[in-house]
């Protein structure tokens, strides 16, 4: 009896010793020197591993930050200016302050205003459905509504609105990592500056058809009438292929274009209500306005 106890103790002890020796040798032999700065920078980064910076993860980004001399082009969209500043202080390098960005959906074609003319049967994937055909509606540029952007979002900043069939971006949670932009096969998500109090004006349409065809497919499409172009005091609006685009840097948020747009394709967000109310389709869905209310209160 005591023999078997002794035997097992000896066996386990020797096994443990051998393992320890092997581990020791391996750790010495294969030791890789790592700059302690990398760990420190990594600690400062938000550890979201979203790849919004272009590197495959926070650790890789930390390595890049330490290795590169001029880090003014590098930016962590999740951490923002604060994190970048503290990293710059730690490394003794210079960073540029960047305007915080937010994802914006450039399509307002809800089920109501952009009726479906065909029915797609296949996988619930925007990319596959875009590969097979142009979409269930007559607009070949707009949102397909399968929600691949929502799946791509790591920050729970997006959800699908069942009523409109469009994704909704919760601006407070959006870190501008760009995952949704990459996931969208129709390229209808754009990163735009967040501005003060999240005030934004943009054309929520990508339709490059002539006015009549665009309007027929979707009643809130940009028809390229160039009314906004004429009214814009700061020359922020350009029209290409019957589609208006507002340059966010030049835009002074005067809201003149919103008023003149005949199809309500230009959307303003988070502005206090004007005395003369402008009816926009964008505020039609209840969930949408709820989100906006929340952000307004926060502001």
């Amino acid at each position: 009896m005591s023999d078997s106890i002794l035997n097992s103790i000896i066996l386990l002890a020797s096994l443990g010793t051998i393992a320890a020796v092997v581990l020791y040798i391996v750790s010495k032999k294969f030791y890789v020197y790592e700059d302690p700065l990398i760990a420190e920078v990594d600690d400062l980064l938000p550890a979201a591993n979203c790849a919004g910076c272009g590197s495959p993860g926070c650790k890789a980004f930390a390595e890049k930050l330490v290795a590169t001399d001029d880090i003014s082009d590098l930016f962590c969209p999740v951490g923002g200016n604060e994190v970048m500043k503290s990293i710059a202080n730690l490394l003794g390098k210079e960073v540029n302050e960047k305007e915080p960005m937010v994802a914006v959906l450039l399509c307002n074609g809800s089920c109501e205003v952009r009726p479906k003319t065909t029915q797609f049967q296949g996988p619930d994937s925007c990319a596959i459905s875009a590969m097979i055909f142009s979409g269930e509606t007559d607009c070949q540029y707009g949102c397909l509504g399968k929600g691949e952007c929502v799946d791509a979002c790591d920050f729970e900043a997006m959800y699908m609105d069942k009523e409109t069939g469009l994704p909704v971006i919760i601006t407070d949670q959006c870190t501008a990592c760009g995952a949704c932009v990459a996931a969208c096969p129709k390229d209808i998500i754009e990163m735009r500056p967040k501005n003060k109090r999240d005030l934004k004006i943009y054309v929520a349409c990508m339709n490059q058809e002539k006015g009549g065809i665009a309007k027929k497919a979707c009643s809130v499409a940009c028809i390229g009438c160039s009314k906004c172009l004429k009214v814009c005091p700061s020359e922020a609006i350009t029209i290409d292929n019957f589609l208006a685009y507002i340059d966010a840097d030049a835009c002074t948020l005067c809201r003149k274009c919103v008023e003149v747009c005949p199809t309500h394709a230009i959307i303003e967000t988070n502005f206090p209500p004007k005395k003369v109310k402008v009816k926009t389709h964008f505020n039609a869905s209840p969930s949408q306005s709820k989100v906006e209310l929340k952000t307004e209160n926060d502001a």
Partner: peptide, 12 residues
Amino acid sequence: RPLLDYILFGKK
């Protein structure tokens, strides 16, 4: 199962 849909996508 939409096998070919995925394979076409995979090929692309």
